[in-house]
């Protein structure tokens, strides 16, 4: 599996994501600077990492979503290349229009940084195939703007089409319908606030995030 991780000024989980792609995908993830205009040839998986791209100026993810490399990411996504956006990466994907809705300031205004329980709401996606339907997993969150919002019609559609793939097991940030992660219409783009790449080996305190990457590797093989 050939993978790439996009690096924006202010990204800080790019190496974590690249480590997960490399360790589980079997070949080194390529780091791609945001100012590039094309992706390496034959990429199967693109990671949009967590962090504070452009210092969260204007809105979280807003500047990164308009950076030069995102044209190539959009083109690749349209061709079916898998895209995984974690945390700030989820914010970038909504700002770029690759996923619906928006991530607003947490409802209690506090930065939340802890392990949370997630429910796998759809185990049929390419990202969740290694999990059981309704399974509870434990993955860390670390964000200030994770309060997912969209209009009621969009929320109904996301739920009706099985595009809500992860839900919080309890209230974490005020997200509409406890949404923690969603996929696009075609199912090849996932945005999620929790960090699966921070839970892939016992030293991390758990391995619940590992199967997301294993499932992806299998699906993209």
């Amino acid at each position: 599996m050939k993978s790439a991780v996009i690096v924006f000024p202010g990204s800080n989980c790019d190496r974590d994501l690249a480590t997960a792609f490399t360790a589980i995908g079997g070949s080194p993830a390529q780091m791609v600077w945001h100012g590039e205009t094309s992706l390496p040839e034959g990429i199967d998986l693109i990671g949009i990492p967590g962090g504070f791209s452009y210092g969260d100026y204007l809105r979280s993810g807003a500047m990164a979503a308009r950076s030069p490399i995102m044209h190539a990411v959009k083109d690749a996504a349209a061709k079916g290349v898998a895209v995984l956006g974690v945390c700030n990466g989820f914010q970038v994907l909504t700002e770029a229009g690759l996923l619906p809705g928006a991530l607003m300031r947490n409802a209690n205004l506090e930065f939340v940084c802890r392990d949370v329980d997630l429910t796998v709401a759809n185990s049929q996606s390419m990202f969740t195939a290694r999990y059981g339907e309704g399974e509870s997993i434990r993955v860390p969150v670390a964000h200030h703007d994770g309060n997912y919002t969209a209009d009621e019609d969009t929320l109904d559609r996301l739920e009706g089409e099985g595009r809500v793939v992860f839900r919080y097991g309890c209230t974490v940030n005020g997200s509409a319908r406890d949404i923690a992660g969603i996929i696009n219409d075609a199912g090849n783009v996932l945005g999620m606030m929790p960090h699966p790449e921070r839970m892939i080996e016992p030293a991390h305190g758990g391995e619940d995030g590992r199967r997301l990457f294993e499932g992806l590797v299998e699906a993209l093989a």
Binding site: R66, E95, P100, T149
Partner: peptide
């Protein structure tokens, strides 16, 4: 529309 406002919210 393209940058200054996020018209979703």
């Amino acid at each position: 529309r393209k940058l200054l406002a996020n018209t979703v919210i």
